[in-house]
Design a protein around this nucleic acid. Sequence first.
DNA 1: TAGTGGTCTAGACCACTTC
DNA 2: AAGTGGTCTAGACCACTAA
Lengths: 262, 262
Amino acid sequence: MAPKWRELADRLADQIRNGDYAPGAQLPQIRDLVEAGEGSKSTVHQAYKALEAEGLVTSVRGHGTVVRPRTPLKRLGIARYDKVKWRDSDEVAFIADRVASGREYKRNEQTQTVSRVEASNAVAEGLGVPVGSEVYARARLVKEGTQPTHTLTSYYRPEHVEGTRIVDPTPGPAGRGGGYRVLYDAGYEIDHMREALFARVPTVDEAKLLQLPLGEPVMELHRTTYTADGTVVEYAIGIHAASRFAWEYDFKVPDSAQDGKA
Amino acid sequence: MAPKWRELADRLADQIRNGDYAPGAQLPQIRDLVEAGEGSKSTVHQAYKALEAEGLVTSVRGHGTVVRPRTPLKRLGIARYDKVKWRDSDEVAFIADRVASGREYKRNEQTQTVSRVEASNAVAEGLGVPVGSEVYARARLVKEGTQPTHTLTSYYRPEHVEGTRIVDPTPGPAGRGGGYRVLYDAGYEIDHMREALFARVPTVDEAKLLQLPLGEPVMELHRTTYTADGTVVEYAIGIHAASRFAWEYDFKVPDSAQDGKA
DNA sequence: TAGTGGTCTAGACCACTTC
DNA sequence: AAGTGGTCTAGACCACTAA
């Protein structure tokens, strides 16, 4: 026997999925359901919190509980790193990404702060430096309009970026062409990358910063960028609101019998 | 002013992260905290539920509330699809994966059911067939010991698999070599793939099937497999417990100026 | 100011684990 | 049987939104 609040939540969830409550529609008010005999206020409230945690609704104090609209996922492919975007033009990579997808660019959609920090375990391993040694961190908070979508923090070895525009904390995204352009101009042309992805529940700080609704997971991206000779020139960690992004990768089926490993 | 339950939860969360409560250690019992003046039973309970939703603890009725151990992520690279694993040997791909990682294989770690179903929207698009047309679905539930880790459902076009071992629902994972071997023997050698990944909150059914602790997200994987001439021979959807897996991809930085697109 | 969801209490009772 | 977390109630009060 499922608890009372579970049964109520399931019933409402079905109605939402069936379209009885369309996206943007308002659910009955808690007090009304109490009066309708669905249970005490706490019980109905618990059902509503469950629906919220399942990503179906959002409750706002003083306003009500409405069905959450399902935003389409933005698809991220490796084409967003295309060299023409940052080498041959003045566009910044992630801005080019936005131009390509038909959205307009607004200056204040990204904040940036550059600082010298001690390398954490993950950063030290990713960048190939001792734990605790000093590295440069370039932290961005990216928004879509006024809504934050993800953070992205790039870490650099000091000898690669000392004296470049990356270190100079001027406003704007590392000047024309972005970080990869700056590295290119400094003699470090990026050649290949590794991305690692996993999902988890946000910390309370992340939930606040990204304004995540209750129950929305985050995607954590670890990106390692190499030059042709295998030197790591950037290690980046991104925290993404999970409901906004999907990642796509194309690859050949490997065949180690042919690839030389016999 | 944060609510009382939030403050209590944050305090306990700090202590867990500091190691004051090690993984496996037991948190104070709810009634003890009530007696210690942390609030009423409901308030303390709410704090505990928050910690559970944040993935820090698990509560068991009749037993107590213990700090959740952090299992290491299993890294999934494209090497798991290596042709030598299913073409040149008798091993099944995902079993080979497990052999390679030093774990032993047990027969009952995977269940499989094959059925003919109508293509849903996603499947129809992935497989390139009309919505509602009949396709073969091979659904597996994969466990690590007794704990489910993910589901994986492969969809095939009937003309590719009719009469093969895939359709014959014998026990075991599609016979020797797995699904790709069967396709290979039928003249469809897989050549390249596309994987798409995103995270979301599980449905209640998924949470039950995968025995997910409260607050654990799932990773949804959409895999499209092609032959050399671009024919789609398999479209698969996987639902993974997020705390168990990380995906890794290596790729060259694209350069459309060189790749012929001018 | 009226009406919404959110917090908190005190207590009864239930479901489950462990001994 | 004892002890754990989970459910539910009735009611008071708080925090926030919108007219």
